[in-house]
Simulated assay, not measured.
Amino acid sequence: MNRDDDHVGSKAVNTDVSGARRVFGQVKWFDPVKGFGFVLAEEGGPDILLHANVLRNFGQSSVADGAKIEIVIQETDRGIQATEVFSIEPPAGSGTAALADFEDIDPEVIRAAPLEPARVKWFDKGKGFGFANVFGRSEDVFVHVEVLRRSGLADLQPGEAVGLRVIEGRRGRMATEVSAWETALKQDDS
Score class of each variant (00 low, 15 high):
Met1Pro: 14
Arg3Gly: 05
Asp4Asn: 08
Asp4Gln: 11
Asp5Pro: 07
Asp5Ala: 11
Asp5Gly: 07
His7Val: 13
His7Tyr: 07
Gly9Lys: 09
Lys11Trp: 11
Lys11Asn: 11
Val13Gly: 07
Asp16Pro: 04
Val17Lys: 10
Ser18Trp: 11
Ser18Tyr: 11
Gly19His: 05
Arg21His: 15
Phe24Met: 10
Gly25Pro: 01
Gly25His: 03
Gly25Tyr: 04
Gln26Glu: 14
Val27Glu: 06
Val27Trp: 01
Lys28Cys: 05
Trp29Lys: 08
Phe30Trp: 03
Val33Phe: 10
Phe36Lys: 01
Val39Ile: 15
Gly44Leu: 12
Gly45Met: 09
Asp47Ser: 14
Leu50Val: 08
His51Cys: 00
His51Thr: 03
Ala52Asn: 06
Ala52Pro: 03
Asn53Gln: 07
Asn53Leu: 06
Asn53Ile: 06
Leu55Met: 10
Arg56Asn: 11
Arg56Val: 08
Gln60Lys: 13
Ser61Lys: 06
Val63Cys: 09
Val63Trp: 03
Ala64Asn: 04
Ala64Gln: 14
Gly66Tyr: 05
Gly66Asp: 05
Lys68Cys: 07
Glu70Tyr: 08
Ile71Lys: 02
Gln74His: 13
Gln74Gly: 08
Glu75Trp: 05
Glu75Asn: 10
Thr76Asn: 07
Asp77Ile: 12
Arg78Gly: 09
Gln81Ala: 15
Thr83Asp: 08
Glu84Lys: 15
Ser87Asn: 13
Pro91Leu: 04
Pro91Cys: 11
Ala92Trp: 10
Ser94Pro: 08
Gly95Gln: 13
Gly95Leu: 14
Gly95Thr: 13
Ala97Val: 15
Asp101Lys: 10
Asp101Gln: 14
Asp101Phe: 09
Phe102Gly: 01
Asp106Ala: 07
Pro107Phe: 05
Pro107Cys: 13
Glu108Met: 11
Val109Pro: 04
Ile110Ala: 02
Ile110Met: 08
Ile110Gly: 02
Ala113Thr: 06
Pro117Asp: 15
Ala118Phe: 00
Trp122Cys: 04
Trp122Gly: 04
Phe123Leu: 04
Phe123Ile: 02
Phe123His: 00
Lys125Cys: 04
Lys125Thr: 09
Gly126His: 07
Gly126Arg: 09
Lys127Pro: 04
Gly128Asn: 04
Phe129Lys: 02
Phe129Thr: 01
Gly130Phe: 00
Gly130Ile: 01
Phe131Arg: 02
Phe131Ser: 03
Val134Asn: 00
Val134Phe: 00
Val134Pro: 00
Phe135Ser: 14
Ser138Phe: 10
Val141Cys: 00
Val141Ser: 00
Val143Ala: 00
His144Asn: 11
Val145Gln: 09
Val145Phe: 10
Val147Cys: 06
Val147Phe: 03
Ser151Gln: 06
Gly152Arg: 04
Leu153Thr: 05
Ala154Gln: 09
Pro158Ser: 08
Gly159Gln: 09
Val162Cys: 01
Gly163Phe: 01
Glu168Ser: 14
Gly169Val: 05
Gly172Arg: 11
Met174Ile: 15
Met174Thr: 12
Ala175Gln: 01
Thr176Gly: 02
Ala180Arg: 01
Ala180Glu: 00
Ala184Leu: 04
Ala184Tyr: 03
Leu185His: 05
Gln187Arg: 15
Asp188Trp: 12
